[in-house]
Nucleic acid binder design. Structure first.
Length: 258
DNA sequence: ATGGCTTAGTTCCTAAGA
């Protein structure tokens, strides 16, 4: 089964591209981020007509995550993460689908750093790690898919110098990501492309796409049970080059069975 | 270059993204 993480950067503006992607690739599970829409503005009918059931966690204007499943309805497990009661940003949704536990994650960007937005990013990461520990204890196939807003290694960016002061590449951001992996999660893309050089994001500005000036920030993390089923992982890069594309490309892992 | 695009909302400008 093909499981996809796709930051759509506005589901209303991206709907034709998303429907096209579903029709062409027929992914089994799609985790969406940056819906930028309240629940009552989501294109629920269009997704249903495309043959996908969905669970949604929208927010007016910003953030927003969802999980789509082909020919099935994901069973919601939770929206949001515990640990910060005053946090009202829609950045986490988790569901059961096809025998898997799947989460769609939109980690805070954290720029500018240092500052309160960066502090929020690190706190959010702590809360994610706490929850991830509980998920591993279930000893099931789990996929944590999303836009982590972390460039894990120097070979995950076109230019270390250009990104040196960015929140995505700070030592604290990387340490948080590494600590998550150290719990026992497998970075699906890294496992299949261990020398880096694979991008999932290209900025709209400065001809980044044309220069292939990208970096890797969208990740699928697999629990040990899920990692045993990993066949391949990659990026559907061509979709980034289309008219009115998102600045992220769909990023995927294929698992045996399901 | 604290911004060269793009999206969405409070629109015909501002904030946010990465």
């Amino acid at each position: 089964m093909k499981i996809v993480s796709f930051n759509v950067n506005g589901i209303k503006a991206r709907l034709p591209r998303l429907l096209e992607y579903l029709a062409e690739e027929a992914p089994d599970v799609v985790c969406l981020q940056e819906l930028k829409s309240a629940d009552d503005g989501l294109p629920v009918r269009d997704i249903d007509a495309a043959g996908y059931g969905a669970v949604w966690h929208g927010q007016k204007g910003f953030n927003g995550v969802a999980i789509l499943a082909r020919g099935a309805t994901p069973v919601l497990r939770q929206k949001g993460l515990a640990g910060e009661a005053e946090d009202d940003q829609s950045r986490y949704i988790e569901a059961e689908v096809g025998g898997l536990i799947v989460a769609s994650i939109y980690l805070p960007n954290g720029n500018p750093q240092p500052g309160p937005k960066f502090d929020y990013k690190l706190r959010w990461f702590d809360r994610l790690r706490a929850h991830a520990t509980a998920l591993l204890a279930e000893e099931r196939a789990v996929v944590l898919a999303g836009d982590y807003n972390v460039i894990p290694n120097d070979d995950d960016t076109y230019s270390v110098a250009a990104m040196a002061d960015d929140a995505l590449m700070q030592p604290q951001s990387r340490a948080s990501y590494r600590a998550l992996l150290a719990q026992g999660w497998t970075d699906a893309l890294r496992t299949r492309h261990c020398h880096g050089g694979v991008w999932t994001f290209w900025d709209y500005q400065a001809g980044a796409w044309q220069r292939d000036a990208g970096f890797r920030i969208d990740h699928l993390l697999l629990s040990p049970v899920a990692a045993d089923r990993l066949i391949d992982a990659g990026v559907d890069k061509a979709h980034r080059g289309r008219e009115k594309a998102s600045d992220h490309a769909p990023t995927w892992a294929r698992l045996r069975g399901g």
